[in-house]
Structure formats: C-alpha cells, structure tokens
Design a binder for these strands. Structure first.
Lengths: 207, 207, 207, 207
DNA sequence: TCCTAAGCGAGACGGTACGTCTTGTCTTCCA
DNA sequence: TGGAAGACAAGACGTACCGTCTCGCTTAGGA
C-alpha cells in the first residue's frame, strides 16, 4: 500500500469521479482526456501526471470497487461454496444494480472489449479457486478451468442481458435462476461421476 | 440483393481482405484507414466511398462468413435441437479453429466490445428461436431468453478461453463438454418440471 | 524553379502575408503558429504541411524580396562597382525604408539572430564577388573576405541604426556617407599599394 | 552596488557558470531553465528566485566580463584614441579569442539577436564617447553617431567572421587590419575637411 | 464506335485529439 | 529564511488521423 500525497489522492479521485460521470453522459469512445480534465476541474497535463490513458484511469477506478465487492462476498457466504447457495450471485446482482448505469455502458452494446475480457476472466478466476478449494485440483470429470469458465460465462451473459433490458427481474430471482442453471442438476451429476467423463472414457484429451 | 459494379465488389473484397490481414499483424486499434487502403493498394478516399468506418467494413466482412456458418449448421443437424446432440457445438468450434487467429484478436484480451456483444447476442438469438420452436414460447420454468442467454454465455466463454489458450483440447471434446454442462442434467430437469419454478411457486416475477 | 499547385502557392502566400502582419503587431517571439494560421484563415495543421517552423516561413518569405532587390541593383548600377558610386547603397536604403517597420523588428533590439546573421553574410558575399570580379582573387593587400566583411558590417550597422532611430536622414545622405566611409579614402589606398600590406611586410599570415 | 547574502551570490554564480557550460554543449534555444538548474545542482524554483529568464541571467553573467574588459582597455591604451593605434582592437580580439567558444555561439549562425544588438550598440557607444572626447561633439563632417556606428559595425562583422571561421588569422593581424580599414585613410580625410561634407555643402540634413 | 457517367488516384485542407514539453506559481517541509 | 521537492495551471508544440473536397485520369457500358 503505497503512501501518497494527500493532494495526489484527491486529484486521482477527482479524475475517477469525472470519468464515471462522463460515461453516463456520452459514448465512452467520445470522451476525451480534455473532457475528463474539464469535468474534474483540472488541467489536461495533470491527467498525464497520473495516468497514461483513459483505460488506465478506468481500471484504477474500478479496481477499488471490485476489491470491496469481493470482501463483502467473502464475509456473507460463510464458507459455503457458491454452488450450494445463490447468495454469492445475489450480492453480485445487487451490486450491479447499484451501479447499473455504469455497467450497462461498460458491458453493453458499446462496451469496451478489454473491460468485458477482464470481468469475465476475473469471475472465472474466482470460481476456479473456489472449485479447487472444495474438491482439490481437477478432481471432477471436467477440467476446473472449463467448469469455472462455464459458470463465469453464464453469469456474465445474464448480467449483461439483465442490464441491457433494464433489470426486468429482481436480483434475487436472477441469482436463483443462475444458481439453478449452473449448480442444481449439474454439480450433482459431476460429483457423482468422480473424475470420469463419459465422452472419452474418463481420460482428458490434451489436444 | 443490390446489383453492383464488378469493380465495386472487387474493391470491397480487397478492403475486407486487407483488414483481415492487418488484424493478424497489429493491434486492431492501431490499424488506420490509411493502413487498410495501403494494404489494399487503394486510395484512402476510396475507402470512404464504400464504408464509413473500420467497424462497418469489419461487420460487412464478417457477416458473409456467419451466414455461411449458419447455413452449414442448419444442413448438418437435421432438425434435431442442439441440446440433444453436440453437433452444433462441434461445427462452431471447428469453424472457430479455422479462423483462430482472427477470432482470437476479436474476442480476446484486446478484443472489440461491439464484436463480442454482437456475437453473444447472435448466439443467444439463435438459441432462443430454437427453444421456442421445440417447446413453444415460455413453456419451460425459466424464461426462454434467460435460458438462451445462459447457453450463449457458456459457449462464448468457452470459445474465447479456448482461443486464448491456443486450443488445448479438440473441437470435439469442447463440443461434448459444453453439451454436457448446458444440456445433460439441465434440460431434463427443466422439462420435467413443466413451467413451474421452485423459487417463487411457479410464477415469473416481472420486476 | 519547381512547379506548384496554384492552391499551394496561394496558401504559402497567405502564410507569409500573415506573418508579416503579425510581426508589426506583436513581438516576434510571442507569435505562435496558431496566430499565423488564424491570421491567414488557415488551419494550424496546414501550416505544417508547408513549413517546419516560423523561421522557415520567414526565410522563404524574405528570399523572394531579396532576389528582387538584387535584380534591381544589378540593373541600375550598369556594371560600375559599388565603391565607385553610392547608387547601390541608395537602392538598399530606399528598399529598407519601404519595409521599415518589418526590418526594424527583424534587425532591431528584439531582432532575430539568425536573420541578422544571414543578412550580414548575404551582403558580404555579394561584396566579395564584386571585389573579385573587379580585381581578381586576393589582388589587394587585404584578403577579399575581410574587405567584403568590413563593407557589409558598416552597411549593416548603419542600416540598423537608421531604422532604430526612425530614419533621421535621407536615403541619399546615408548612401553617400557609407560610400565616403567605406570607399573614398580606403579604396585608393588599397589599390595604390598593390598586394602589399605594411603590417607584416606584404605577406598574409595564415594563422 | 547592492549588498548580498554570500549564499545568494554563490547561487547566482553557479547559475551563470551552468549557463556558460551549457551554451558550449547545446544550441542556446534548446537550453531550458531546468537544464540550468540541473547543471548548477539547484532546484528549478530557485532559479526564479534570482532571475526572470535565461536572458536576464545571461546578461547579468556577461556584464561583469565586459566591465573588466573595458577597464583593461582603458588602462592599456594610455589615453591615445583608438584610431591612432590598433591596441584597443588587439585587446578585444584577444579577449574574444579567450572566450571563442562562447562568443561563437552568441554571435554566430544561431546567435541571439538581442545579444548581437547590445554588443553592437555597446561598441558604438564607447566609440562615440571617444570621438567626442577627442574632437568635441559633431566637429567632424560626419555625425559622430554614424562614424561610431561605422567603426562598430566593421569591428563586429570582422569579429564574428573571425570566430565563425575559427580564427584563421592572429589577433594582431586582425587588429592591424581593422585599424587600417577604419582609421588610416579615413580619419585624415575627415579631420582634414573640418565639419564640412561635400555631399550637401557642409550642412547635415535632418530628414 | 463514341461518349459519358462512374470509379478511382492524388493530395490539399479543416478539424480534433493526442502526448509532450516548458514555464511560472504555489505549497510543504527541511536545515 | 533560503532552498528542495514536486504538484499543478497554462498553453504551445509537432504529430496523427479523420472526413471532405476538388481535380484530373481511365474505363466500362449504353447510345
């Protein structure tokens, strides 16, 4: 945790704040560094003292929030893996709902590829770690990575659809549904089979 | 189908070809209209006679390929819905493999948001139509849109992961796996329940 | 003499004109490329299509005028060397007077070093050629370069003084005076001595 | 003569020293305040505590040297006016030679206009005073200012030429030559004529 | 077969954003 | 109290790309 000048922290916060405000106002690609500086009441050159690009600022600004979210989830789920209860999903959908306007832009029709990519990856990573903690590495008939990616893909797709359609269902309902589709029916099947997989007689191909 | 000058068709083909080649050479965002024109041995102004932007060209160029893919799938699956056999998935993974370098860029770490968005949407759309043809509209305990989106999300996530890791498994294996995770275990559960859904006593919430 | 697009010539002319106007309005160093572009009703980027710097534009713009001046002098002096008549000087002083405001800035207190340098060099060069045409190379007791430089220095100093003090004497008087100081009394002395020079017994030192 | 803190004097000396060193290393215009501060191992802000600009520092730094030079000349020439002996010129050329690298930059191709201007003016001023001390004000057939300016221009032009060509002749030779060209032949002519001047019958025009 | 409209090359230009560079001011803290 | 350290405003710089335009050449397809 690097020590920073109070002014520096304040300046960066203002830049992040400014970017978030602008994202809600106009297409992301149409936002210039000058716009951000103006919105933050700072000089354009000052932006470059802190960030090399819009992207860097956005990521820096999003990271803190994600960290907080993960911490919250860790606290609430009490050690139970996510496939046993929809609570993790619920917290995520609620968090998304709170920042709906922002994420709708970032993940939607004019979303940014690298944001989508990193969000998807991030979810998959967390899922994979949870799977391995529960069963040990590759103890299931599907490679952990693939299973995690399957979970993440489903969650990502449902979240983005939900946002794009202005959250037509409750967070709770969405969480229950994704839980049903990903966990109920699938996990028992996998766990029951052990590390066997019917398609090729229990061996994982490597190419 | 508009009639076009032979020259015009040829010019557009050269532009599409040029863009595809450049995508394999350098980051998509770093490709300029001038680059495309140079690569296609055309004048920059000529580009604007045909397209308003890189994106338009890219979409125009991708559409033909997607159309051909859909046609092929329709032909091979013989009317059987995709959740009864992994053949649809296999064709898709094979198609992706053939254009691996291109899609790796478009869907990967430095991918383009609008491409990802449209691909995901496209898959979900096709899936939804197929579900409705098989069961009628919203005859299952999960809204068709959501189920379709779940399928699409999983497929998308696995495809992009597969590309990003240079296709460590065979197309067949990937298809079997996504089939197992999305269909086997899930579809019987849904079909068996009729249009009922345990979480809220069989009624769909609307907000 | 390179052939140029009519538009290009027009654009350059407008830039030159703009710079001249601005020089009369504000300190040369305070003139920005943007100022010039604005004054010429052109885009700043357009400036860079033609010149790399203010300096380049200024020189390009001055050269034409100097060429015209030299041509005029050649015509009027009828082959007689400048030390036999003050006509050359008169034409120069008259020309300077016509562009007094401009040259006052360029050669005066806030003048530009490289302009002064080139003007001084230019005069010396012309003088040297004239000396050599009249007497042959180094036929006088002073090296041609030095004599030419002496003439040029005197002329330059008197012109800049004259401008700085808002031309207190007539062009004719100034020309007569510089002729008297440089030619009358000095040239006969040099020519009479042949290639001998008292200070070191007639030999030129080389270091 | 203002009293100054020892530290302040030291700081200024270091700044002057730094600028002199840098002038020998890179084009004058390319030297930034930051460069000077770095070279002097001082903070940039400190520069502004003492000078408002590079120019001010340069002038402050040069002035001391010029003062010393004038003092030396006064001492050596023993009251004899410069047109009676080349000693003044010799001292100047020797002084220039000692600081050749510096003056070559300041007075040469990429020299600074305001330096040239002030040097030229300074010489002319000294010359004019000397003329007036010897003959009384405007006792010669040429205005004192003009005669002084003629001397100064010649000296300046020869010095700058000499530097630019890496001092191909000795200081002594240069001094003798400039003396010959400016004084011998010219001064007797002027003094002999009294305050009369052939071009306009002895009256000085005023415009 | 001509001729005429279209496609295209060439390149000037306006416009906009970029990232960098200096400059000058300020504040905070240290010796 | 002079100076170090460094954040910041201000604004010019030179570059890059975009989209539009004009001016010609050429070339194919209808007269």
């Amino acid at each position: 945790m690097e020590k920073m000048d109070r002014r520096v922290r304040r300046t960066r916060a203002m830049l992040g704040q400014a970017l978030r405000e602008l994202i809600l106002e106009k297409p992301y690609d149409a936002i210039t560094i000058q716009d951000i500086a103006d919105q933050a009441d700072l000089n354009r050159a000052t932006f470059y003292l802190h960030y090399a690009s819009k992207e860097e600022l956005l990521m820096d600004s999003l990271e803190a929030q994600f960290d907080a979210l993960v911490t919250q989830i860790e606290g609430e789920k009490n050690g139970r893996p996510m496939w046993e209860s929809p609570v993790t999903g619920r917290i995520i959908f609620e968090y998304v709902a709170e920042n709906a306007a922002l994420f709708k832009v970032l993940l939607g029709a004019q979303g940014q590829g690298y944001v989508m990519y990193r969000v998807l990856n991030y979810i998959a990573q967390v899922d994979e770690e949870e799977i391995q903690e529960a069963f040990g590495p590759n103890a299931l008939p599907v490679p952990d990575v693939i299973l995690a990616r399957h979970f993440a893909g489903s969650l990502f797709a449902l979240v983005s659809w939900w946002l794009e359609h202005d959250m037509p269902y409750s967070s709770t309902y969405m969480a229950e549904t994704v839980h049903q589709l990903c966990a109920v029916g699938v996990m028992p099947m996998l766990v029951g089979m052990g590390a066997a997989w019917p398609v090729n007689g229990g061996e994982w191909p490597t190419a």
